[in-house]
């Protein structure tokens, strides 16, 4: 499972409730979820993306390709969120076409992935 942990994940998050038995009676106890393992998965995931990131930096792929991979979208999923046909999205993976895109289409992509247009145009 490719999980992206948000940066301020636990600022207003209580964790997980467990039912515990303390010898006499049952108690409910909130426990902070340990996201160490999720972070390990996330780091592995980011490492796997290194080739794609390089391709974006050298100009073979558009930033959209990187965002699709990092948030574990695929063409079908993105197409159903945005309403843009899959063959068009495939075209937009190339920088040549991506740089010519209108704002309305960029907005659709940004809305589907849940980031702003400025974030969509560049990579980390």
């Amino acid at each position: 499972m490719n999980v992206i942990v948000k940066e301020n994940a636990f600022d207003n998050h209580e964790g997980q409730l467990y039912h515990y038995f303390d010898g006499e009676k049952w108690v409910e106890k909130w426990e902070k979820t340990n996201l160490d393992v999720a972070r390990v998965i996330m780091e592995n995931h980011l490492q796997e993306l290194e080739p794609i990131r390089n391709q974006v930096l050298t100009g073979n792929l558009s930033p959209l390709a990187y965002h699709i991979q990092i948030y574990s979208f695929d063409l079908k999923l993105l197409s159903s969120y945005t309403g843009i046909p899959k063959r068009h999205i495939k075209k937009h993976l190339k920088p040549k076409y991506f740089n010519q895109l209108e704002k309305s289409i960029l907005e659709k992509y940004a809305f589907a992935i849940g980031i702003s247009i400025e974030e969509l145009k560049k990579i980390k």
Binding site: M1, Q16, Y18, H19, W26, T33, V37, A38, V40, I41
Partner: peptide, 28 residues
């Protein structure tokens, strides 16, 4: 192997109440 184990741990500890959490709940 590591990422396989990591996803297994996630299912036991984090998804839903976590697998162990369901066992506690059934005990209750």
């Amino acid at each position: 192997a590591m990422s396989y184990l990591a996803s297994l741990v996630q299912v036991i500890e984090e998804v839903g109440t976590g697998g162990a959490g369901y066992r506690y709940m059934y005990a209750l």
